[in-house]
């Protein structure tokens, strides 16, 4: 299980951010060809992102690109420019149903084959930014083996719901719950939408704490200063770390003795619980204890 607590958006026509973005320490990067790029700069951003993907440095970050929506003339050109660079995945905006994923999946397969990239390598994160997209969350999540995550929208979704974003985010509570249920039912990850008020640290802590409790794996990020705040929220507590250590130790002992079942304090522990405990230690920066 890799850490996906923070996915930082980088404007696709901004060399400074594209080249330095990985230094801010997020778990992932989203090179953005969609909303961050004006309609007159789609071509130059596509070329810039493609070249930086080939020659740039990204450290240990998961590297993804948000392409333009399938309702535009740009999305296939975007894929043709970026998929041959061997990225980890793409984000598709405004997905409303499995048919969108199918069209992109087919294009990805065609481009991967032509470029000599392993077919299926390019994963998909679907952005559900309309009521219809949220309603179809499970069908979207389960529509292709490439789909490894889904994410609710923020501004677009609240507009489609005929409301606006509030400080406590009550208008997004229902969609968030539906997204996490759909993701888990399909066996994939769930990311939360961005927190738009970049100077409201307390608000960000509240929202990150809430979405962590719902079960989200992480959050999309629009400003580097939000990264350490979200990471600290996702940092396991001492109590969680202690419990995880005992489970992981018990699993190691059971494995050493050739036992299939793991027992902690006289209670049997399932394999998914062991896996979760290992992930807790990884999140706490103690991955060496998992080995």
């Amino acid at each position: 299980m890799k850490l996906r607590r923070t996915m930082l958006y980088l404007p696709g026509n901004n060399p400074n951010m594209l080249l330095r973005g990985w230094l801010f320490g997020s778990d992932g990067l989203i090179l953005d060809l969609e909303d961050a790029v004006s309609i007159h700069e789609k071509d130059s951003a596509r070329i810039l992102v493609s070249r930086i993907l080939k020659e740039g440095e990204f450290g240990d970050c998961e590297v993804t690109v948000r392409i333009n929506g399938v309702d535009t003339e740009y999305w296939e050109k975007d894929l043709e420019a970026i998929v041959p660079c061997g990225i980890d995945g793409i984000r598709i905006p405004k997905v409303e149903g499995p048919e969108t994923v199918k069209a992109v999946d087919e294009a990805l397969t065609r481009i991967e084959k032509a470029a000599g990239v392993t077919v299926g390598r390019t994963k998909i994160c679907c952005l559900l930014e309309t009521a219809r997209g949220i309603w179809n969350a499970y069908e979207v999540a389960a529509s292709s083996p490439r789909v490894d995550s889904i994410c609710p929208g923020g501004e677009d979704l609240t507009a489609d719901l005929r409301t606006q974003r509030s400080d406590d985010g009550v208008e997004l509570e229902g969609p968030r719950r539906r997204v996490i249920l759909a993701a888990r039912a399909a066996g994939i990850d769930a990311f939360d939408t961005v927190f738009p008020r970049i100077n409201d640290d307390e608000g960000l802590v509240r929202e990150a704490t809430f979405i962590k409790q719902l079960g989200f794996d992480g959050k999309s990020v629009i400003h580097p200063r939000q990264i350490p705040i979200i990471h600290s929220v996702f940092m396991p507590t001492e109590k969680e770390i202690t419990k995880a250590r005992r489970i992981v130790e018990a699993a190691k002992e059971a494995a050493a003795r050739g036992l299939g079942a793991v027992s902690v304090d006289g209670r049997m522990v399932d394999a998914p619980v062991v896996k979760r405990a290992q992930f807790t230690l990884t999140r706490a920066g103690l991955s060496e204890e998992v080995q």
Partner: peptide
Amino acid sequence: GALDVVLEARVEAAWRRLTGGGAA
């Protein structure tokens, strides 16, 4: 202060605009 990779990308974009008849 453009690095080589950026300089090349901008040259390519300008060339495609010059020869392809417009942006996007």
